[in-house]
Write a protein that binds this DNA or RNA. Structure first.
Lengths: 201, 201
DNA sequence: CACTTTTTCTGAACAACGTTCAATTACGCC
DNA sequence: GGCGTAATTGAACGTTGTTCAGAAAAAGTG
C-alpha cells in the first residue's frame, strides 16, 4: 500500500491538525505522539513528516486555532463603550476560555520548543492584537496619558494575568496563592487599574 | 561486578544529586537522562532507582537546594529596617538569582511533573517562607491594615514577579513585553506597592 | 574462620518516543 | 499505454524512563 487518494493534500493536512487538536484536548499535549496521531487518522507515522516539518509544527498549527478562538471571545465580549469594567469582563472571558480549553492552552504555553527554533512572527502579532484591545481600555480611563503608557500598562496586566493562569494551569498556583484564580485575576485588574489611574504626569 | 563499597548510601545519594545538579546547570533539565547521569557518576542506570523512586525524585532533590539558595540570598539582602524599598531590593536579588541559575530555576518550575504525583508539602512551606519575608515589608508600609491583607498582597506580588520571570526564562516574555525583565519587575513592585498604600479601609 | 543472609549493583530487556528514508504504489500528463 | 512525479509506507536508528533476575560483596552469625 502506498499512494492513496483518500484525501487531498489540504484535506489531509486539515485532518492531521484537527486530530491533533482532539488528542490534545482529550489527553494533553504530553500524550500527543507521532504514532498515536498517525494511527488516529489511519496513516503511517512517516506521512506526518511529508506534510509538516515535525511534531512542533503540528502543535503550532493547533495553537493558531487556540489563539484565534480567544481573539474571537474577546471581540464578542467587547460591547458598549470601553472602560475599566471592560477589563474585568475581559478577565472573565479569558479565565473562562482558558479553563474550558485547559489542555489547548497548556499546549500553547507549556510546550517545550526545541532551543534554536524561533517563534513565528505572526504568533507575536496575534498576541499583540489581543493586548491592543486592553490598551483601549486604559486609554479610556486616562485619555490624558500618552498611548505608549497605556500600552505598557496593558502588556504588564496581560503578562500578569496570563502568567498567573499559567501557574494555575500547571497546578503550581497553590504553591503560592490560596485564593482561587478568578479572585486573583480581578485583584490584579484592580491593582493595575488603580495604579494607572493614580499616575502623576 | 555487583555490590561495591565505593560510597556509603548517603554519599552515593549526595553524589547522584550533585551530579544531577551539575548536568542541569550545564545543559538544562531537558538533557538530564538516567543514562547520562549514571555514566557521569560511574554507576549503572539501575542503581539510581535503588536510591530514588524515579528521575522526578532526583530533580526534586536538586530543587530543594535551589530553593534554599534563594532563601539564603533573600535573608542576606535583608538589612536595615523593612519598607517598600526592601521589596525592590528583593526583586533585584530574585532576578539576579534566577539569572545566575537559569537552568536550575527552569528545572524548578518548568519541569513537567507527571500528573498524579503530588507536590511535597515542605515544598509549599519553603515557598511560604520566602513570601513571608515580603509580607513584612507590606506590613511596614501600612501597619494599620490587618496582616492578612499584607500576606495576600505579597503572594500576589510574588506570583506576578515569579510568573513574569518564568516567561522570560522560557523565552516567551518577548511574546508579550518589550521592556527588559528588570524594568518589568520593578514596575510590578511599584504598582503593587502603590495600590497597597492607597487601600481604603 | 566459614556459612548464611542481606544489601547493593549490574546490564540486558521492554515499551515507548521523534525522525528518517529506501522502496512501493498510484495519480496526472503526454 | 507508458512515464515521471508525488504521496505513502513501515522498518530502522538512536533515544528515552523504568524494571528486574542474577551476581557479588558486605554484614551478621556460629
Amino acid at each position: 500500500m502506498a499512494r492513496r487518494a483518500d484525501h487531498t493534500k489540504e484535506e489531509l493536512e486539515a485532518l492531521i491538525v484537527s486530530a491533533a487538536r482532539q488528542l490534545i484536548v482529550a489527553d494533553g499535549v504530553d500524550k500527543l505522539s507521532a504514532r498515536r496521531l498517525s494511527k488516529e487518522i489511519g496513516y503511517a507515522p512517516g506521512t506526518l513528516y511529508h506534510h509538516f516539518d515535525d511534531l512542533d509544527a503540528i502543535v503550532t498549527a493547533v495553537n493558531v486555532g487556540t489563539l484565534n478562538g480567544l481573539a474571537l471571545a474577546f471581540s464578542q465580549a467587547q460591547e458598549g463603550e470601553l472602560s475599566g469594567d471592560t477589563l474585568h469582563r475581559y478577565a472573565d472571558v479569558f479565565l473562562d476560555y482558558v479553563q474550558r480549553n485547559k489542555n489547548l492552552w497548556n499546549a500553547l504555553f507549556e510546550f517545550r520548543r526545541a532551543p534554536g527554533t524561533e517563534v513565528p512572527e505572526w504568533y507575536v502579532a496575534k498576541i499583540d492584537g489581543l493586548i491592543h484591545m486592553l490598551t483601549a481600555c486604559f486609554v479610556a480611563e486616562r485619555s490624558d496619558l500618552p498611548e505608549e503608557q497605556a500600552q505598557e500598562a496593558s502588556r504588564l496586566l496581560f503578562a500578569s494575568v496570563h502568567s498567573v493562569s499559567s501557574l494555575e494551569n500547571s497546578g503550581r498556583l497553590q504553591l503560592i496563592m490560596n485564593q482561587n484564580i478568578a479572585e486573583i485575576a480581578h485583584n490584579l485588574v484592580d491593582i493595575h487599574l488603580q495604579a494607572y489611574k493614580n499616575r502623576k504626569n
